[in-house]
Design a protein around this nucleic acid. Structure first.
Lengths: 211, 211
DNA sequence: CCTACCGATCGGTAGG
DNA sequence: CCTACCGATCGGTAGG
């Protein structure tokens, strides 16, 4: 086999990172050791160092790999919907399905690592905080769009809506991971529906017929 | 086991565990190494083994120590209120203050360790799952009491109420720990108020959706 | 991407 | 509760 080393190297790297993200969703980004990743991939420890340089750089690369998965499943899926209420609902439903479908073996990668790193200063924590803020910001942004388009009650608070929706998504993830409660996803969907009903209801209900 | 000991031994043990719980809320129960705890307490590694036998037994002892703190701050505080709606509101407010006041340096101990252990079978995970289920069960129990006493709308779902309240408490904890957002506690209180308004309103207007 | 190796630290033990 | 010690594994390096 005469080989094009560059594309192959990139594919190898991506495969390592996808496996690493799975391991990290279970054991954490600290519990993901170079040795365990070497065993899981069949690549020697020094081979992994050749790819990633250091443990911290590996952790940062794993985060980017998981980011691509999350954005592909959630952000892009909702991008097809019209900005505002429709996209907000699409975002939340895609996010629920992302958790529910068990993309990572240990549940939502970012739920796991944000709890792990929230007290440990450094580049890893900074990047995790940046991404999770960005994504909750998407919820807020679409709520603000919906408000601007008159799709929400005038006294709605986009930040508050994002807080509540985000809370339900994470509660479903925890409930499923820790207690194996599959009904958590329906609980989350019910709670989400309640929020949407509340913020879309006009203050005067006279015109509200089923629709 | 060395738990049947003289008062001084028990006091030493309790002091070690309180420090260990603080460390574990930051570094996790895995990141809490015997060596680091030895350095933090000034007791030798083998001295710690004399107290706790093994790392797993230490982890389990730390969990019980953190349980006492949580129950003292939250469960007992709410026990003064009348069963039903008052106690439910007391429980949620005490829980919010427990997180807000920074009892553990790394935020809510159980939020940290439940994310850490949700995928690792064993006694540690089992105990964490048992306790967190128990406490969310308290919320549900008081919601059921409130319903039985006619303090809630007749179509209220205690399990759903507990799900939503619990979600807000954990969202506030994460928001504060990861992003330093102190306003998260007011967001949580606002969201909680909304739930109480919804479930205590006599006319249950929420199920208006057509289909 | 490999073999061979490093000092530091891990959980844990012997014996007092 | 201590000193002294164990084998295994940690992140990382040398040199190819």
């Amino acid at each position: 086999m005469s080989s094009l080393q560059r594309p192959k190297g990139r594919a190898t790297r991506a495969a390592i990172l996808r496996k690493a993200a799975d391991l990290a969703s279970i054991e954490g980004l600290s519990g993901l050791t170079i040795g365990s990743l070497a065993a899981a991939t069949g690549i020697s420890k020094s081979g992994l160092f050749a790819h990633f340089g250091s443990k911290e750089d590996l952790q940062l690369a794993v985060i980017e790999s998981a980011r691509e998965v999350f954005e592909g499943r959630v952000v892009e899926a909702a991008g097809a919907k019209a900005p505002g209420l429709a996209r907000l609902e699409g975002l939340v439903e895609a996010w629920t399905r992302y958790i529910e479908s068990g993309v990572f073996r240990g549940g939502c990668f970012f739920a796991a690592v944000s709890a792990e790193f929230d007290d440990r200063p450094g580049r890893v924590r900074d990047r995790i905080a940046e991404l999770t803020a960005l994504w909750r910001g998407f919820l807020e942004e679409q709520a603000a769009q919906a408000l601007a388009r008159g799709q929400l009650a005038a006294d709605s608070d986009p930040g508050q809506i994002a807080f509540e929706l985000h809370a339900f998504l994470h509660e479903a993830n925890r409930d499923f991971q820790l207690h194996g409660r599959v009904e958590a996803f329906e609980r989350a969907r019910g709670a989400i529906r309640c929020v949407f009903e509340r913020v879309t209801s006009r203050s005067s209900q006279s015109t509200a017929s089923g629709g």
